[in-house]
Design a protein around this nucleic acid. Structure first.
Lengths: 339, 339
DNA sequence: TCTCTCTAGGCGAACGTTCGCCTTTATCAT
DNA sequence: ATGATAAAGGCGAACGTTCGCCTAGAGAGA
């Protein structure tokens, strides 16, 4: 109830013991007489004592903080991931006595410097990395520093580090298998540039599904480009301009934004989406269900990924051997009217 | 370069001075001989010294942390705000030597307890509040505790506290004025329940614009309900079932999700959106531009709001009198094909 | 009765800073 | 020559914990 800071000494004075004793009792590291226990607990209650976290961290020599940074999306793009991912990390961290520390994202060389500063200043005990790609300089740096981290996403296969990822290949495979099951044979895919690890992963699922069904994977059905609305639209227009017997009847897009571009293109060509042309996206953005027609999409277990990242990282930080250093989560296909 | 922690003492030993001197020199609180200065700087460089933030905070008696918590949206809803708001807070905070500490959101009584714990444990120096409404218990609590905070959003007018808000009334007014300018006379509004401070604010802009144009504000044109797709759709179906001479020609929705519901309803009734029925949303969700047709909407300066919140809060925390305790930011109308 | 053990709790130290005050030496005006 | 002043830097203390070790007294076994 008091406005000023309540410390162990205040509690001790009121309970008539030394402050170190209060500390030990509260941390369950000491046996005391029942009446002493009661006096201490009463004092804690009456004064509203809470241990000072800074002093505790100071003594412990670490911060109980998990550093996290994310690339802010350009205006017009969505980051529907952040809410779920961050919320679940914060909850999980809090449950095991940690906090998540968001720090500003810097491009280029400054990025690794930011990580170095956070380490050297003792600001964080570990990192969770997002937007991981091949040759990620942060991973190289943290591996060299032997500083605990967990990546949300895989990188170079030859690097050994803990990661959590979503099985993008399985997601696409599932979607393409569904299309094949619906009778589609000419299935195109709107993919990403070759330097995208996530894009290649998702693309692989397409290739696998096509091959398993003994369908040729024509290169003219595999289009690569940036994952934007405009690119998705342009690619689809291109596909729809193919001769009628070669025009795809279904399009798989590696994200919803491209899928929406594809929908726009189909509409421009007067096609009925879902009937004349099936479209499936990836990410299951919240808006997907409200589009016209509602967009089929692959949904990722983002919250689960956040939880796992923290679980793994805390194990690493505390020197425990985690049961598994690699967690691959399965996405699920959400079928709506667009396919 | 060393893996172990580098402290002031290490730097001091290498530079041949006392560690307190190093501290003062680095903080610019002391004049030393140029050569001493050089030795110190060289030692700092070579050892890669960074001041330990925990120890510094310990000494300062505060955490240089800003507490922030947000209500996680239900699955299917979007929080396109979070990315921008949090990013801009983190950047601004970092620029003035603070960090943002996200903590788990709890409903009910536990919510205020969470805030109390964070204060008593010295975890934060101040709070930024989101999702503020009338009678917000957090505001009551923090006012009573006299603990620094800034609310993103207004609450009861009789309470005196620092806030940053977006002028929702101005946003709606602008949109409705636009509709009136386009010749619309029968303009309906999809509003929120009366206990929503934000909803009432935005609604007021509609009433103002209608009144200024000497248009009657029929109660049958003012519909209130939860801001979901389904509610927006149902309300619009209801409006479209009015007799032809009373059917609205334009609909203003207090958020984009309802506006999208309205678009769905219009489509169901075979109306061409933008021509037969004008629709304007609020929030300018990232997807709005990709809808068919692209949705007109009111865009809020979220990043600016985040910056201002931190700026104000830091002033309060450091006992400076901020220039203005209330910041009202102007949204802007984005016209697209739906209106 | 003596020693041994157990219980209940005290005490000093340390984590890495910053802050206030003190000391030493050189400089300068008188 | 002398006292005052400024420059350069040292030193002890404190922030609030936790940790390891110590001690006083009580009870028990020989």
């Amino acid at each position: 109830m008091t406005a000023t800071k309540v410390t162990l000494k205040d509690v001790a004075a009121r309970a008539g013991v030394s402050y170190q004793t209060v500390s030990k009792v509260l941390n369950g590291e000491m046996q005391v007489a029942p009446e002493t226990m009661e006096r201490i607990q009463a004092a804690v209650q009456e004064l509203g004592y809470r241990p000072n976290r800074i002093a505790r961290n100071m003594r412990a020599g670490r911060s109980f903080m998990i550093g996290y940074s994310w690339t802010q999306t350009e205006p017009g793009q969505v980051n529907h991931i952040l809410d779920q991912f961050l919320s679940s990390m914060v909850r999980e961290a809090s449950a095991v006595g940690y906090y998540v520390l968001p720090f500003p994202f810097h491009e280029g060389k400054a990025q690794v410097e930011t990580y170095r500063d956070l380490i050297k200043s003792g600001n964080v005990d570990g990192f969770v990395l997002s937007s991981v790609n091949y040759h990620d300089p942060r991973i190289q740096f943290l591996l060299k520093q032997q500083f605990p981290f967990v990546a949300f996403g895989r990188s170079n296969p030859e690097w050994d580090f803990a990661w959590v990822d979503i099985d993008g290949a399985a997601g696409t495979r599932q979607a393409v298998e569904y299309l094949i099951g619906r009778g589609h044979r000419r299935i195109a895919i709107l993919a990403w540039p070759e330097d995208s690890r996530v894009g290649n992963d998702r693309l692989q699922g397409y290739l696998d599904a096509m091959q398993a069904a003994q369908l040729a994977t024509e290169s003219s059905y595999i289009l690569r480009g940036e994952g934007t609305f405009e690119v998705g639209r342009a690619m689809t227009l291109h596909l729809l301009d193919l001769p009628a017997d070669r025009r795809p009847t279904a399009i798989m897009a590696l994200n919803d934004t491209m899928a929406i571009g594809a929908m726009a293109a189909a509409r421009e060509r007067g096609l009925t989406i879902g009937t004349d042309l099936a479209i499936i996206g990836f990410d299951d953005a919240p808006m997907a269900q409200y589009l016209f027609p509602p967009l089929s999409s692959v949904r990722q277990p983002i919250a689960e990924a956040g939880r796992k990242c923290v679980e793994l990282l805390v194990a690493l930080v505390e020197g425990r051997e985690p049961e598994q250093r690699h967690v691959l989560l399965q996405p699920s296909l959400i079928i709506r009217a667009s396919s």
